[in-house]
Design a protein around this nucleic acid. Structure first.
Length: 980
DNA sequence: CAGTTGTACAG
DNA sequence: TACTGTACAACTGA
């Protein structure tokens, strides 16, 4: 196997590549996909068609089909947000899924060419020469095709020195001998020589979705010869794609006629002298070339391959890997199609959960049950709903990892349940009142929940905690959160769904495998499945499903804690993220007061401006269009008004504000420039109106806006804010700032206080890089950008002009984002050369920064991850991608992640400190909002000075850096006034 | 009706 | 060809 490779997904060197072995305990490996048990027994069952019928082998020429797809699908419609072009992968994958579905093969493989150094090129140096160089955008996709195949567990077969066709011919020959039916999917006509009664070539007619079945009759109809004769015909006619010239003056018609008349090429050659006319002479002149063509297009059928046909049994695909790969490629629809059209193999799941559900209701029962729990953390799963800072719980399950579980019905508000967040939407406990926890039982449960010594583990705890609080159950002792743990392990994931985690880390489906009643329980209507028979009252019994989830959480907690420990994240979870859960829950619950009247007045005003500007714009172009439609705007600007084209985007030319401003400068005096002015004004007002309307919709009955913080979204460790997003309230324009004025101090409080870190990212960069100049800049207390500017431009700090300062500012911040000279030149609207000069000068003066930035990428490349000051990791596998776009993107992420992430660490520490100190000092003031480097607090009467001191101390002291953490504080009756 | 695209706001 | 997010309207396609 030294000169060939059989590539299989996630296979380490020890793996038997072809026949997954069985045995080995679950969890014995880190990688769920590699768990042999997960696959055992499922072989062939997933995709196979009618069992017992003739076996069918599907062979695909990977290179050929992907290449077809590359030219069939427009590049501009297929690329990821990171810029990776995916048209070939998409087309190939789509084709593969269709063929697997339609043909239901029992065996499958994809063959690839290994290199151009084939025996054919050795015989004929011009073989395949003259082909346009493979576009780089295509080459980069071959690896991705292989990733998809790995995820689908479709074996890839290659043989050094041979083409995919030879591999296919060899496998076809073997399979036919074993009585297989064979399907060959390729865009290479050489494969037509393989066609016979048992072998069909699926040849792409147009693109890759439309495949023609080339049977012997179809070949004959199309080319006039039987399939075995096809290569003889091709030898005569030539094959331009392989740079094999044919006999001049001889086309397929003549060639077919000759072959028929002389019983093939051998006969034709023997009788070549008898041929008449120009064509005959031409053949005689080119006979050597024809014979060479025939040698070259003869496929090799006896290669020594590392696999035999029996190894190619269709295997269940790797669900986790499919998610990962399809996510990365942003193939949402395709993934849906995969799961919808090809029965999911469920390979990773080896079963569900066994639970024994008790239903204690009275105090004694509850106490006895709780006491019976060991010391291990207890999984908690809450049913109910939550969001925007509040919630109500209708029931909850507690479970130990061994499946011992209890269900507690809190069904006070039955009937309208449905959850916000991860829990299943289920009605409140259906059964009669008797099953609801009684008041004394509830009190016992409340005591247990409030006991910090009783460890609880919850999945995505913030919402459930709010729901429990709504039910009078305050929770202390949150010892784990499986969503947070998973996030810290792999912060780039799209979601941390409990079912997915259970599958990935426990290799089990989130379902009830078996439920036993607890000893002494008399509960006749238990059902075995959440979706199973309904209880007499008509509602499904929520207990088993909740119990399973609680048990899964308890079990997952152990596994994830171990994984997190390996990644050095234990303290980060226990000391930062977990304590923060409660802090965020309280901040959400508090909300921030909104001045409704002011918001409504703004809404009217912005709406009026929108109206005016729209009318004015229509007047210029003499018609009404939808100014919010980029498509219609393009028509107006570039066709009707014939303005110069802007930057290209997928759907034409951009109409974004930056481009329009450029256009305005260029077209000053142009009859349509008035349109631009009104359009821009319309955009601004319309955006502001939207923002205000959005905010108004979220004002709660208490007159406050309660955002929801997401703790597991941003890959760098930042929080995010949704519904509404309070982290992007306008501030840069005067109009926008008026919205901030509508965020006001609430009743019973005297003011709002904002406290923000100044230049925290630059300070972190100074700390991490240790650059002496930058460190000195911060220690000097001088204005940062003036200080840096004075060094870069070699002038006194006082002589740094505003223009110089703003250039420096842009550059300093850009550096942390991986800014290029090109990017800087665009940002500053200066020449690339000038930008490059600026950067060179900058790095000359602050060489430590350059060394640091370089080093951080190098280290990430070798370790696979970046790290923040608190050890928060971000894994960036694309750093070693052979695709430049992806690699560059990953490098910029690597530059930015430690800086942005460390800043996130720092403010999170500060938040814990502020919350704790406020409590310790017995202040009534409270923290309301976090905006990445800023905290907003509501000041209780008389506490202003104490609060300011406390906040400054906690924020400045949140980390020990080599430069001071400067905090600026402002106070006022609105967010705007408190700002600075 | 769900998903994608373009635009725009924040740090 | 600057990182991290969220929201919205328009458009697209199953």
């Amino acid at each position: 196997m030294s000169d060939s490779a059989l590539l299989r997904p996630g296979a380490g060197p020890d793996d038997d590549l072809v026949t997954p072995s069985s045995g080995g305990p679950a969890g014995s490996r880190e990688d769920a996909a590699g768990d042999p048990r997960a696959q055992a027994g499922a072989q062939g069952a997933a995709l196979a068609g009618a069992e017992g019928s003739r076996p069918r082998l599907l062979l695909v020429d990977g290179h050929s089909m992907a290449y077809r797809a590359f030219f069939a699908l427009p590049v501009e419609n297929f690329s990821t947000t990171t810029g990776q072009v995916t048209n070939a992968v998409y087309g190939f994958t789509s084709m593969l899924i269709n063929v697997l579905r339609d043909e239901a093969p029992t065996h499958v493989a994809v063959a690839f060419d290994v290199s151009r150094e084939t025996f054919r090129a050795q015989e004929y140096a011009e073989y395949k020469a003259g082909r346009a160089k493979t576009p780089a955008e295509f080459s980069g996709q071959v690896g991705l095709v292989k990733e998809v195949l790995a995820a689908l567990r479709v074996p890839v077969v290659e043989k050094e020195g041979f083409e995919a066709d030879d591999v296919i011919a060899t496998l076809t020959t073997q399979a036919r001998a074993q009585g297989f039916e064979v399907l060959v999917s390729t865009g290479d006509r050489d494969a037509l020589q393989l066609v016979d009664d048992a072998t069909t070539v699926l040849y792409p007619r147009k693109g890759v979705s439309d495949l023609v079945r080339m049977t012997p009759d179809a070949v004959e109809e199309r080319y006039g010869v039987r399939p075995q004769r096809y290569p003889e015909l091709a030898a005569l006619v030539g094959e331009t794609s392989d740079n094999l010239p044919g006999v001049p003056g001889v086309g397929p018609k003549t060639a077919a006629k000759w072959l028929a008349a002389h019983d093939g090429l051998d006969g034709l050659v023997a009788e070549v002298d008898q041929l008449k006319g120009k064509a005959g002479q031409s053949l005689r002149d080119h006979l050597d070339q024809v014979l060479r063509n025939r040698r070259l297009n003869r496929l090799v059928t006896d290669l020594d391959l590392p696999v035999v046909v029996d190894d190619l049994v269709v295997a269940p695909w790797d669900r986790e890997e499919v998610h990962r790969v399809f996510d990365a490629l942003e193939f949402r629809v395709l993934r849906e199609r995969l799961f919808a059209t090809l029965a999911t193999p469920e390979p990773e799941a080896e079963g569900g959960f066994s639970v024994r559900v008790a239903r204690p209701r009275g105090a004694a029962e509850v106490r006895r049950w709780l006491d019976a729990l060991g010391d291990a953390a207890v999984g908690v799963h809450v049913l109910g709903r939550w969001g925007a800072g509040t919630g109500e719980a209708t029931g909850l399950a507690l479970a130990a990892a061994d499946g011992t579980a209890a269900w507690f019905s809190l069904a006070a508000a039955a009937g309208k349940a449905g959850t916000d967040g991860e829990g299943p939407a289920e009605a409140a406990d259906g059964p009669a009142e008797g099953s609801v926890l009684d008041d004394e039982g509830r009190a016992v449960l409340a005591t247990w929940f409030a006991d910090p010594g009783r460890a609880k583990v919850v999945h995505d705890a913030k919402g459930p905690l709010q729901a429990l609080a709504g039910a009078g159950l305050a929770v202390a002792g949150l010892a784990g959160d499986t969503a947070l743990a998973a996030y810290l392990c792999r912060p780039d994931q799209r979601s941390y769904d409990l079912a997915d985690l259970a599958l990935r880390h426990l290799h089990r489906e989130l379902r009830v495998e078996e439920e036993e009643r607890e000893q002494g329980e008399e509960e006749p209507q238990l059902t075995l499945d959440v979706d199973g028979p309904a209880t007499p009252e008509g509602a499904p019994d929520p207990a088993p499903g909740a119990a399973v989830r609680a048990a899964a959480v308890a079990e997952l907690d152990d596994v994830l804690a171990a994984e997190l420990a390996e990644r050095g994240g234990t303290a980060l979870l226990a000391e930062l993220e977990l304590p923060l859960v409660g802090v965020l829950a309280r901040m959400e619950a508090r909300g921030v007061a909104a001045d409704g009247a002011q918001l409504r007045a703004l809404e009217d005003q912005f709406a009026a401006t929108v109206e005016e500007q729209a009318e004015a714009a229509y007047a210029v172009i003499d018609r009404r269009v939808n100014l919010g439609s980029p498509k219609q705007l393009q028509e107006v600007l570039f066709e009707q008004l014939e303005m110069p084209r802007t930057k290209r985007i997928k759907t034409g030319w951009t109409t974004d504000a930056e481009a329009l401003a450029d256009l305005l400068v260029k077209t000053d005096g142009h009859p349509g420039s008035g349109f631009l002015v009104h359009l821009l004004a319309h955009r601004d007002a319309s955006r502001l109106r939207q923002t205000v309307e959005g905010l108004l919709k979220t004002v709660a009955p208490d007159g406050r806006i309660h955002t929801t913080y997401q703790q597991t979204i941003a890959a760098t460790g930042r929080l995010s804010s949704t519904d509404p997003n309070l982290q992007n309230i306008p501030i840069r324009t005067e109009e926008g700032r008026r919205i901030r004025r509508a965020f006001v101090v609430g009743e019973g409080y005297e003011s709002l206080l904002t406290a923000d870190y100044s230049q925290i990212e630059m300070r972190i960069m100074a700390h991490l890089s240790g650059d002496e100049g930058l460190v000195e800049a911060f220690r000097s207390g001088e204005d940062l950008h003036s200080f840096v500017g004075s060094r870069v431009f070699a002038v006194e700090p006082a002589d740094v002009t505003p223009a110089m300062r703003s250039k420096i500012k842009a550059m300093s911040y850009g550096l942390a984002y991986g800014l290029s000279a090109f990017g800087l030149s665009r940002q500053l609207r200066i020449a690339v050369e000038e930008a490059r000069g600026l950067m060179d000068e900058y790095f000359e003066r602050f060489g430590g920064v350059r060394d640091y930035l370089r080093g951080v990428v190098d280290e990430a490349r070798s370790t696979g991850y970046t790290e923040t000051i608190l050890g928060r990791r971000r894994y960036l596998p694309d750093l070693t991608s052979d695709n430049r776009q992806r690699r560059d993107m990953a490098e910029r992420m690597a530059l930015n992640a430690p800086i942005q992430g460390s800043a996130a660490d720092v403010i999170k520490v500060a938040m814990l400190g502020v919350e704790r100190a406020v409590a310790e000092q017995g202040l009534r003031s409270r923290m309301l909002l976090q905006v990445h480097d800023e905290l907003v607090l509501e000041v209780a009467p008389g506490e202003r000075d104490a609060l300011e001191a406390l906040v400054r101390e906690q924020m400045a002291g949140a980390a020990e850096l080599s430069v001071p953490l400067d905090v600026s504080v402002g106070v006022g009756t609105s967010w705007h006034e408190a700002g600075h």
